[in-house]
Design a protein around this nucleic acid. Structure first.
Lengths: 239, 239
DNA sequence: GTCTATAGCACGATAGAC
DNA sequence: GTCTATCGTGCTATAGAC
């Protein structure tokens, strides 16, 4: 919140029509041989990877451009050749991950058996928390802080996706395949429980001395979350 | 992560023995009349309240002391008379809230009926998310970022509390009063689902246009979370 | 495209009068 | 205790040589 919030339009790839300063993706003195393009893309990726790691631990304002450059193995100046500002790096990191973040929800099919489908969804979300904990934490930070940069995306793409899946869940309940539950609260519960293992990994480690790094713990987490959400914890004698 | 991490010992109330600079809590030129002490305490509280609101939205590094001073209705210099550094304010805010954050878990009694007790716990946690969303978000930010300042507290007090309650839950299961579930994963699930409504309020608002501010929504949230965790979502014909 | 050097400025923190 | 004024630092971003 401190200094600004995107003061000028960042000359990235998509938006602004008039970008005087040349950028690596675009034309340059050298012809863009496939080899060169690949180098450039690799460098961009290294920078974004480094930025993801740092932003996810310290947030936008807690990370300096110099740290990103160092972690990516480039000079600070060179980084500013690829990205016009720190905010532009931040947005690039977020938008690169959005699709992947939503993929598990997209993958749910209405025709599947609900209990199987939801079990699989939970498994996938925990796998994401396991393989991409930094991404999960960055989204968490961004949303907790009001998602100034993601809000629009949430209100359009995400809402559309969630509404569709909510209707699907309602259909399952209407067909007598699922207990009556508000679909949105169910989705929130699944998001919350699965992302918790990445976002609150520090707390879990402090309490248990382990985390999703440990495969056995990851399996136990998926198993317990599935059981709690699907079966509940009320005691039921074996029928 | 940027610049420092508590470079010098903050001359607050507890720790460091030698604090040359006088502080409002301690002796001053004026005798500490009850009236004066009360004024000072009120001011301190106003400052911490302002800091909580800002830190919870923008984190430690995204908040400036000038903003805190402005929100609290004091000058920046005056704020530095009460607190030696920004970090000291941050720590003071966190430690003021810790007890309250853990109170609902502490309140669970082993002799209670598990289903009732857990339902009540969920209700209280959602009430906390509703009445103290800023506190919940600040803890979320702090833990996501690795809880550099809370880690010790988590490893000692919190661990002790959680281990005790985990044993209690295991006792319920052993007594046939609760379905078999790993107590830690159950506690995580309850934390995650209930705190989600405060921490991800921005996302929920983007999706549904409402939140815990709305009492009806808050009731629906508590009701649905309780139902999901206690009963599960698998369809069961009425017996 | 990549470097060295530095401009420019916001911010945390302090000095010293009252 | 509170104020005005200011210092010093560390950071983002740019200029300009190569």
């Amino acid at each position: 919140m401190a200094r600004s919030a995107v003061t000028r339009d960042p000359p990235g790839k998509g938006a602004s029509p008039a970008t005087p300063k040349s950028r690596p993706g675009q034309r340059s003195a050298h012809p863009k041989t496939p080899r060169r393009l690949k180098q450039i893309e690799a460098k961009r990726t290294a920078m974004l990877d480094a930025a993801l790691g740092l932003f996810s631990r310290a947030g936008l304002h807690g990370t300096t451009v110099e740290q990103i450059a160092e972690d990516a193995g480039v000079s600070k100046t060179n980084l500013f050749y690829y990205f016009a500002s720190k905010e532009e790096i931040y947005v690039a990191v977020l938008s690169r991950l959005l699709d992947e973040w939503l993929a598990p929800l997209r993958a749910i099919e209405p025709d599947a058996d609900p209990v199987v489908a939801i079990g699989e969804y939970i498994r996938r979300k925990i796998l994401f928390s396991r393989t991409q904990p930094a991404a999960s934490r960055l989204f968490c930070l961004e949303i907790v802080q009001g998602a100034p940069l993601l809000k629009r995306e949430l209100e359009t793409s995400l809402k559309q996706l969630v509404d569709a899946k909510a209707a699907m869940i309602r259909g399952w309940t209407a067909a007598g395949k699922l207990a009556p539950v508000d679909p949105h609260h169910l989705i929130f519960a699944i998001w919350a429980t699965t992302q918790h293992y990445a976002d609150f990994a520090g707390q879990i480690d402090a309490l248990l001395g382990t985390g999703l790094d440990d495969e056995a713990f990851a399996n136990a987490a998926a198993e317990n979350v599935s059981r709690i959400i699907l079966e509940g914890i009320r005691f039921r004698p074996i029928p």
